[in-house]
Design a protein around this nucleic acid. Structure first.
Length: 491
RNA sequence: GGUCACGUGGCCGAGUGGUUAGGCUCUGGUCUGCAAAACCAGCUACAGCGGUUCGAAUCCGCUCGUGACCUCCA
C-alpha cells in the first residue's frame, strides 16, 4: 500500500487537494456520460478512461465506490430558444425512427465500443428518460424556493435571483454582468428574464414527439437538469467527486451547481474534476467540428487520417501516456509510438516468468514502487507512473541479459507492481491481442508460417524468403520469434 | 470582444527554482541464415525579450503564437 495520500486537482478551487471522502470508506463518483445521438468517437474515450483509472485506483485503495455515469437520451436542446427540437429528436426525424429507438441504438453502440477499452462498467448507468418524475420534483423544489419562474409552459432558472444569495459562476469564474454583455442575442429569448437564464422544463410543441406530461403542461426537461437530479438521487445531496470533460465546465456544470444549490440549499460536490480534450491537428476533436474519428474507424483503420488500425489497448495506453488535464494531440506517429511502447512493457512483463534469480538484487524495487505510486497519488499522473515501469522494463531486460540481478522476493514484488499498476489500475490487458479477429485467416497464416519454419529448419531459405516476401507484398508484417512467429495485418 | 489555459529536443509528452523524465524516431552496436522484431548504447530541449535570484525551462512583466469556453459537445 502507499504511504502518501491521493491528491486531486479540484477545478472549483483551482488547486490540488488531498482527497478525503465525506463518509469513508464510501466514495460517490458522478461523471457526465454521452449524449446518445451518434456513434462514439475518440473524444468519448478520454473521460471514460480517465475516470475508469480513478474508479480502479479508488477501489485499489480500498474505498467502496459508487460510480454513476449517466446516459443522456433526452433533453439536450440544440439551441436554448428553438422550438423544442432536441438532438435526439432531430436525428429521429432524419432517420424516420422512434426517438427512443435512436437513443437505444447509440446507447448500445457506446457501451459496446467503450467496453473494448477494458473500461469497467459504472455501478449505475442511469438514463435521463427514466428520471422525468425526479426531474419534475426538482423543478418543483427550485420553483418553491423562488429560483425559477414559469413562462408559457416552460420553466426557467432565475440566475439573477440565485446570484443574490449564492454565487453563479463560482466554478467557471464567470461574472453575471460579463455574461450579460457577451451572450449572443438569440431568437425567442423574450420568454426569459435574462439571456443567461436556462430552461429547467421546456414546453413541447405539437409536433414534438418526445414529451412528458407535467403540471406545467406537456414538455421535456432542460439540458442541465438530469445530472443534478440523478447525482442527488443516487449519491445524495452532497457527494465526493464530479467528473466530466472541460468543455462541460460552462455552462453545464455551472448550471448543475446552481440547480442543486437552489433545490437543496447546499453545495453538492466536494471535488470537481475535468479531463482535457483530444485534439487533432491542434483543434479539439468534436462532433460539431466534424473532425472526429469514430471508434470503429480507429479499430479498422478505415479513415483518411489513419495510416493503420489501432487496437483499443494501444489507444488506452496512448491516453495514459498523457496527463488527463493536458490536451492530447492525435497523430499516427504518436499512436504508433504508444503501440510500440506498450509492447515493450508487455514483453518485459512476460519475461518476469522465467528470469534467473540471484541472491541479491542490483536494483531498488521498493523505491521504484514508491515513486510509481507517488506519481499516481499526484493527481493521477499516469505518464510518470508509466515512465517508472519503463525503467523497470529496462532493468528486467538487463537481468535477462545477465548484466543485472534480482532476488526472488524482488521478483515477486516486481510482478505485483506490474499487475497492480499496469493491469489492475491502468486497466490494460496483459495478453497481446490476436492479430486478426478472423480465425480462418489465422488458421491459414499458421499453415503458411509453419511451412516457412519447416523450410528454415531445412536451410531452404529460398522457400522461406519466398513465403515471407509474398506475404509482405500482400500486406502482412511477419516477425520471427525465438520459438515461432508473429504476424499482423498492415492496413 | 470577454474569460481561462498553453507554447519543452525530429514527433508525442512529464516536470514548476539547482538533479538523466519517459516513450517513439534517428544513429551505432548485439543477436538471428538474411530482413524485420527484440535487446544495448548514443542524441541534453524548454517561443522571444527583459526582470527577480548565488542559480530559472520552472517565479514576475511584456511581446509573439496556439487552443478552449462564452451555443450542443467528452
Amino acid at each position: 500500500m502507499t504511504k502518501n495520500k491521493l491528491v486531486l486537482y479540484n477545478s472549483i478551487k483551482k488547486k490540488k487537494e488531498v482527497f478525503e471522502p465525506l463518509n469513508p470508506p464510501f466514495v460517490g463518483l458522478y461523471v457526465c456520460g454521452p449524449t446518445v445521438y451518434g456513434d462514439p468517437h475518440l473524444g468519448h474515450v478520454r473521460p471514460a478512461i480517465t475516470y475508469d483509472v480513478l474508479f480502479r485506483y479508488l477501489k485499489y485503495l480500498n474505498y467502496r465506490v459508487r460510480y454513476v455515469r449517466n446516459i443522456t437520451d433526452v433533453g439536450h436542446l440544440e439551441r436554448d430558444s428553438d422550438d423544442g427540437e432536441d438532438k435526439i429528436l432531430k436525428k429521429a426525424i432524419i432517420e424516420q425512427l422512434e426517438p427512443m429507438e435512436v437513443a437505444q441504438y447509440y446507447t448500445n453502440s457506446y457501451k459496446y465500443q467503450i467496453s473494448k477499452f477494458n473500461v469497467l462498467p459504472p455501478s449505475i448507468e442511469p438514463q435521463a428518460s427514466g428520471h422525468i418524475i425526479e426531474q419534475q420534483q426538482m423543478i418543483g423544489q427550485i420553483l418553491k424556493n423562488g429560483y425559477a419562474y414559469l413562462k408559457n409552459g416552460s420553466v426557467y432558472f432565475d440566475v439573477e435571483e440565485y446570484n443574490k444569495k449564492y454565487n453563479y459562476g463560482k466554478l467557471s469564474g464567470r461574472k453575471i454582468d460579463e455574461l450579460l454583455s457577451n451572450t449572443r442575442e438569440l431568437e425567442g429569448q423574450d420568454e426569459k428574464k435574462n439571456s443567461f437564464d436556462f430552461a429547467l422544463w421546456k414546453r413541447a410543441e405539437d409536433k414534438h414527439i418526445m414529451r412528458w406530461p407535467s403540471e406545467w403542461g406537456d414538455g421535456f426537461p432542460g439540458w442541465h437538469l438530469e445530472c443534478s437530479t440523478m447525482s442527488t438521487k443516487y449519491l445524495g445531496e452532497v457527494f465526493d467527486i464530479h467528473g466530466g470533460g472541460m468543455d462541460l465546465l460552462f455552462p453545464h456544470h455551472e448550471c448543475e451547481i446552481a440547480q442543486s444549490t437552489a433545490a437543496n440549499g447546499k453545495e453538492s460536490v466536494k471535488y470537481w474534476m475535468h479531463n482535457n480534450m483530444i485534439t487533432i491537428e491542434g483543434q479539439k476533436m468534436g462532433k460539431s467540428l466534424g473532425n472526429f474519428i469514430l471508434l470503429e474507424e480507429m479499430f479498422s483503420g478505415k479513415h483518411e487520417k489513419l495510416e493503420k488500425a489501432y487496437s483499443p489497448m494501444t489507444i488506452r495506453f496512448f491516453m495514459l501516456q498523457a496527463h488527463y488535464r493536458s490536451t492530447l494531440d492525435f497523430s499516427n506517429e504518436a499512436l504508433q509510438a504508444s503501440e510500440k511502447g506498450l509492447e515493450r512493457l508487455l514483453n518485459a512483463f512476460q519475461l518476469l516468468d522465467n528470469l534467473p534469480v540471484s541472491e541479491k538484487s542490483s536494483y531498488d524495487i521498493e523505491t521504484l514502487k514508491q515513486r510509481a505510486f507517488n506519481a499516481l497519488n499526484d493527481d493521477l499522473n499516469t505518464p510518470v507512473m508509466l515512465s517508472h515501469l519503463f525503467d523497470a522494463a529496462k532493468y528486467i531486460n538487463s537481468v535477462k541479459a545477465g548484466t543485472e540481478s534480482i532476488n526472488s522476493s524482488d521478483l515477486a514484488s516486481l510482478k505485483e507492481i506490474f499487475n497492480d499498476l499496469l493491469f489492475d489500475i491502468g486497466g490494460l490487458l496483459p495478453d497481446k491481442e490476436s492479430s486478426s479477429t478472423d480465425s480462418k485467416l489465422g488458421e491459414v497464416m499458421d499453415i503458411l508460417l509453419n511451412l516457412r519454419i519447416a523450410a528454415k529448419a531445412n536451410k531452404d531459405f529460398a522457400t522461406a524468403d519466398k513465403i515471407r516476401d509474398q506475404l509482405q507484398a500482400a500486406g502482412f508484417i511477419i516477425k520471427d520469434k525465438k520459438d515461432g512467429f508473429e504476424w499482423e495485418l498492415k492496413n
